[in-house]
Nucleic acid binder design. Structure first.
Length: 812
DNA sequence: GGATAGGCGGTTTTT
DNA sequence: CCGCCTATCC
């Protein structure tokens, strides 16, 4: 959350003459435009662009959609285009709107433009994320949407706490109707630019005993009273502002002569509407994106936006960037062939001129279980390292974060340096949020959520009872908590002990507020953390994390130095939640496929390509075919991260929720082109019940059982099943897999190749008996020690005691 | 107010 | 199976 900053001063500079386009190139003063113009003598920024890139840079008028495949120079086009607009004298830096999704992307773009035109780009006031640009607009017109200019920005945590209060205030059971569920609902509505009155009746009724709309309206009302906005509001309020105040909209339409949007495939409906409102006054909008890399549908992104671009923006020019500068032809072929299985796409074919005869094909390997997978990948990384490859150029990209732990464990054992990208961020840590809450209370006395957070941290004897009294008064009078507390300190309503504690706290805040103008904000921060007893609290804490938390607090104060004021710092934090991940030393990167988008590495390992995990079962269950296509795009993103080497793995057994499950190779493996893929002999064994559940897989044929020596019951049964069925379901028949939903998996009997494989999947009761001798594909022979429902505890002769589902063992 | 047991959920994440 | 949150007890 946050609060304002010097948002008023940037305006004078920005406003200066934004109405006029730079008329004659020659007249520009000392600004960016001038430097860009100087560079024009030889527009070397255009040199080295391929024809399509050049067209994308030079087609400045009218709507343009640049379909930029992975590694085709997207950012280069975007930044060069801006340099070109500036140098051609068509606009001042302050007349260009350039929107990105992440702060990182915005920062990179700013830097690269700086390199192109040789100098700083301070004049580009409107280069930023959707959210930061919206904040800038809103600060200026806050009153028009029921806020005042210093409004706070709530983060997810504040949002949840507020929603919980609203749900409870409606007299609903907050267990049945969780704040989390409500938050995702409201986020969804805001992503679609729906205010409480716009929400379709059916959806509104589905939550909180039919009270969805009322709760949403109530929540918005509370935000307004708190003078706060959540992330979704930032866009929503600006849309409302534009719709209800045409004069304001017209002002921005005139201001933004050229608009550029990065990662257009990730825009949601609200962002699309926002852009369209602005583009109504001015068709010079250029959107850059790749429909094949749309992987955020689950958080509201509409691939449709990019698919419909030509329709939405009349007379649009569509330019395809298909020349890839990143990967080998094998990698491109693998990725292209895979993604061609998607139907809803605009279609691009990546190619490269860089045909290296030495290039390695994409590799597919199998492991017995996830442990072996981690071990093998670890070994390979060590081998690469020994051959002089930098660990910085190696990445492991997983579908789900639980997969990371196995790699971490393994790398710790090997002493291999690794770094996990993603995960909890600096500003989300408890101690940081607490400290921030103190600062917020100082800067914005009406910030109730911040006050609630720290009122009794450290403990001051201000428990629930006291807080309830304060809350009641605040609510009745519609005043901030701190104001209510101050009033109550003058009465007898609160017990003397608590009253004293409360009065002391309020006095402290008064004191700190008075000091705000008198000293450096970093100095004040230290005083606050010290006098509040907050640092002392952690110093007294004997737990293992306490020293780290104290370090983080120091780091927080240090990072405040970069800002002019406390308010400026708070604003930054609310919008820029990323932390510098620049740890020293070479390291292998471990991250999810999602967080890998936009990155590239020489060598990429892609473990866990198994049905159910990737494509993820939940994506299939919840979004069916669209879900599958998004998973496939994720696979495409994964492969295209690799410059030289991509190695895909699948494990035949994986432990999920503590139970061993045998798994089937991902259907995506069958969608890779044989000519560019090398299947590495499985190291030892084979697991699962031979044959994919949804169709023939050429990975089925490579199991060692085929070489003859195997005759286990599971194998024989699978063979019988194949023979009986006389063939397989059509490859790629995902409809069948779709039907085999998680529910069916858990409740119905599990069949593979028409054969009943699991008798009692789910809550059924096992028909095995204690003491019975059984066979398990992975663990071999053993005796049942105990039975709980369909879960057996078995003492295996070799593997020891394990718990497995009865469906994975055979009577023997 | 702090410790502890029981319940629940367990894909992906930015702003 | 494991980790987190909450409710409950002292």
């Amino acid at each position: 959350m946050t609060e304002p900053s010097g948002y008023s001063d940037d305006w004078s500079a920005i406003d200066a003459g934004y109405d006029a386009a730079p008329a004659a190139p020659a007249r520009a003063g000392g600004g960016i435009a001038a430097r860009a113009l100087a560079a024009r003598r030889g527009p070397d920024y255009l040199a080295g662009l391929n024809p399509e890139q050049r067209q994308a840079v030079e087609t400045i008028d009218g709507p343009v959609l640049v379909l930029a495949g992975a590694g085709t120079g997207k950012t280069r086009v975007l930044t060069t285009r801006i340099a070109h607009i500036l140098s051609s004298g068509r606009a001042w830096p302050s007349q260009i709107l350039a929107v990105t999704f992440t702060n990182k992307a915005a920062r990179e773009m700013r830097e690269r433009i700086g390199h192109l035109i040789g100098g700083n780009v301070d004049g580009m006031a409107w280069l930023g994320t959707f959210h930061s640009i919206c904040v800038k607009i809103l600060r200026r017109h806050a009153e028009l949407v029921g806020l005042s200019s210093g409004f706070s920005i709530l983060d997810t945590d504040d949002q949840l706490r507020l929603m919980k209060q609203v749900i409870q205030a409606e007299g609903l059971d907050d267990k049945r109707w969780t704040a989390r569920a409500f938050a995702s609902l409201v986020d969804g509505w805001k992503n679609r630019a729906l205010t409480p009155k716009d929400v379709p009746e059916g959806e509104a009724r589905a939550f909180g005993n039919g009270k969805g709309r009322k709760l949403y309206a109530e929540y918005q009302d509370r935000l307004s009273v708190l003078n706060a906005a959540d992330f979704g509001d930032l866009l929503l309020h600006v849309i409302t502002l534009f719709k209800t105040h045409p004069d304001v909209l017209a002002d921005y339409q005139r201001r933004f002569r050229f608009m550029l949007v990065d990662e257009y495939q990730d825009t949601n409906i609200a962002q699309y509407l926002w852009l369209r409102l602005l583009a109504q006054g001015n068709p010079n909008i250029c959107c850059v994106g790749d429909d094949d890399q749309s992987i955020y549908g689950w958080r509201g992104a509409e691939v449709d936006n990019i698919l419909r671009f030509e329709h939405d923006f009349a007379g649009a020019t569509v330019i395809r960037l298909e020349r890839n500068y990143r990967s080998t032809s094998h990698i491109l072929a693998a990725a292209s062939h895979l993604i061609a299985h998607n139907e809803g796409r605009l279609g691009k074919t990546l190619f490269t001129d860089d045909a290296d005869p030495e290039a390695e094909p994409v590799c597919v390997a199998s492991a017995w279980d996830s442990e072996e997978e981690a071990r093998s990948i670890g070994d390979e990384i060590e081998a690469l390292q020994a051959r002089g490859h930098s660990l910085d150029q190696i990445a492991i990209l997983v579908r789900a974060s639980f997969q990371m732990r196995e790699f971490e464990d393994r790398f710790v054992t090997l002493g291999l340096n690794y770094r996990v990208i993603g995960g909890p961020r600096f500003y989300e840590r408890m101690e940081i949020r607490d400290a921030m809450a103190y600062f917020r209370c100082i800067a914005q006395p009406a910030d109730d959520l911040a006050f609630e957070r720290i009122v009794n941290t450290p403990k001051r004897g201000l428990g629930e009872a006291t807080l309830k009294i304060v809350h009641e008064l605040a609510r009745a009078e519609r005043i901030p908590l701190m104001q209510a507390a101050a009033q109550l300190c003058l009465t007898e309503e609160i017990k003397p002990k608590a009253r004293k504690a409360l009065a002391d706290l309020l006095a402290a805040f008064e004191r700190w507020r008075a000091q705000l103008g008198a000293m450096k904000h970093t100095e004040l921060a230290e005083i606050v953390l010290d006098e509040s007893g907050y640092t002392e609290m952690w110093r007294a804490d004997r737990s293992a994390e306490a020293p780290g938390r104290l370090d983080n607090l120091k780091e927080l104060v240090r990072s405040m130095e970069e800002f002019e004021s406390l308010a400026g710092f708070l604003e930054h934090i609310a919008l820029v939640m990323d932390r510098d991940n620049a740890e020293a030393g070479e390291a292998v990167s471990i991250m999810t496929l999602h967080s890998a988008k936009g990155l590239e590495f020489d060598t990429v390992f892609l473990p866990g390509w198994e049905e159910g995990l990737f494509p993820h079962q939940r994506a299939l269950d919840e979004s069916g075919r669209a879900g599958l296509e998004e998973e496939r795009r994720l696979a495409y993103v994964g492969i295209t991260r690799a410059r030289k080497r991509a190695k895909i793995w699948f494990a035949s057994n994986r432990r999920i929720h503590g139970l061993w499950q045998s798994s089937i190779p991902s259907r995506f493996l069958d969608e890779l082109p044989e000519a560019h893929v090398e299947v590495v002999e499985p190291s030892t064994r084979y697991g699962g019940y031979g044959g994919g559940g949804y169709g023939a897989s050429r990975f089925d044929a490579r199991d060692p059982f085929q070489s003859g020596s195997y005759s286990t019951p599971g194998w024989q049964r699978a063979q019988r099943a194949r023979a009986a069925q006389g063939g397989f379901a059509e490859a790629g028949g995902f409809a069948r897999a779709d039907m085999r939903s998680a529910r069916a998996r858990q409740q119905g009997p599990l069949t593979i190749e028409g054969e009943l494989v699991a008798r009692s999947v789910g809550d059924g009761v096992s028909d095995y008996a204690v003491g019975e001798r059984v066979f398990h594909l992975k663990f071999g022979y053993g005796a049942i020690a105990s039975i709980e429902g369909n879960k057996l505890t078995i003492d295996f002769e070799k593997a020891g005691r394990k718990r497995v589902l009865d469906s994975f063992v055979e009577r023997h």
